[in-house]
Write a protein that binds this DNA or RNA. Sequence first.
DNA 1: TCTGGGGTCCTAGGACCC
DNA 2: TCTGGGGTCCTAGGACCC
Length: 442
Amino acid sequence: MSCERVFRPDLKDKPVVVLSNNDGCVVARSNEAKRLGIKAGTPYFQLEQQFPDHKIAVFSSNYELYGELTARVVEIIRQESPTCFRYSIDECFVYFPTWKDSSLSKFPIINCNRSSLPLGGVGGGFHSWGENLHKKIKQYVGMPVSIGIAPTKTLAKTASYFAKRYPGYRHCCLIDSEEKRRKALKLFPIEEVWGIGRRLSVKMKTLGIQTAYDFAQHNGDWVRATFRNIVIYRTWQELNGIDCVPNEEMAKKKSICTSRSFAGMITDLPTLQTYVSNYAARCAEKLRRQGTVCTIVSVFLHTNFFREDLPQYWNSLEKRLAVGTSSTIDIVKAANEVLRSLYVPGYHYKKAGVIVMGIGPDSPLQPDLFDFNADQFQKMKQLDAVIDRINKLNGSETIVLGSQQYTRKEGAGKAEVFANVIKHDFRSKNPTTRWSDIIPLK
DNA sequence: TCTGGGGTCCTAGGACCC
DNA sequence: TCTGGGGTCCTAGGACCC
């Protein structure tokens, strides 16, 4: 949402929403859109019915743009911070070993969230640090960030919630005393707490817990006995100022999934194979990018759950490989094998996906005792490396396997196949990554 | 007509072992 | 009537996150 506004300053203070893949449903909303009552997850077609003559700016997801702009933001945070752990596409945690003046804990944890003064006064050095960071990012990238500073990650997330919503904080909120901690938690609805989701907050409310403060005030033994869940207990500790969520750089993924819903529905195996081949190829790329191989290739397939008038089918199967691989050819082949056993004719399929598991480092590789051709293996590795380079330089999918070509299938008919490729009718341009999209100055 | 995608961790229960 | 105890590993499902 903020990314879309960078190149559309005219949308400042206007309702803006971003849609999921296939322009399916709303996944991000500006504050103005929230105020109109647009709920997260609203299907786009309902949005159109709800606001027929709307003045809402609608965008399809543009991951290329978001990835590029958020990388610039993170780069600046790294310049300004002693340590910075990237937590998600739009969030970082910064760890300050020099925090001394807090009665809560030795170290402040800072949550920078891209995206009136109930807590009272403003702290010293850390607040101006945060304000300057916000200013710099605004100037260099054009994106607003919210900054929360506190002794634990859960409290820092709480602080960034206030920083985002109350302009008085000037984008940076600090929880650095027992008094502010209590005040913040009293104003913080339980369902907003990091780690307390939809189900748990319902349960909490039946137990009379409305705010984060109500929860934090309970006895630790009571929390453990009531929920019998270590994660919830950790959240309780964090709210009470005990830092127990480890500082970790994002580890290598233990499973990698590529899945998509189809714009329409698919009934025939050859078309499904084209899609599954593409998902498998994407998984192989992701494996190589993190320097890993997999030993399990799993494929799932299902019909449209919303179409109660049609027969339903859901299934998934996997293939285990003797030798770990990240080769596109290997993984596409395995995925298609699985798909053939999975496919049942007669259903209208809506979604398929490939998941690779059993992930380990790509070297040293454990070869198959009986069937391993080192020469062939080296060739495949080089081929993949070359394909990755070309696709990086010239845009993804410059080189693909024959089985990945959406137009190739005989009998399917070009129009029919193209009708199924992902829909994104409201995609913005990519002025930071594509020469053809560069903005002309008059 | 149209309803996202990609992850993690924890727990309970079953299979199996000695 | 009587039917061990203790452990590991795997899987499915549920909860959470962005």
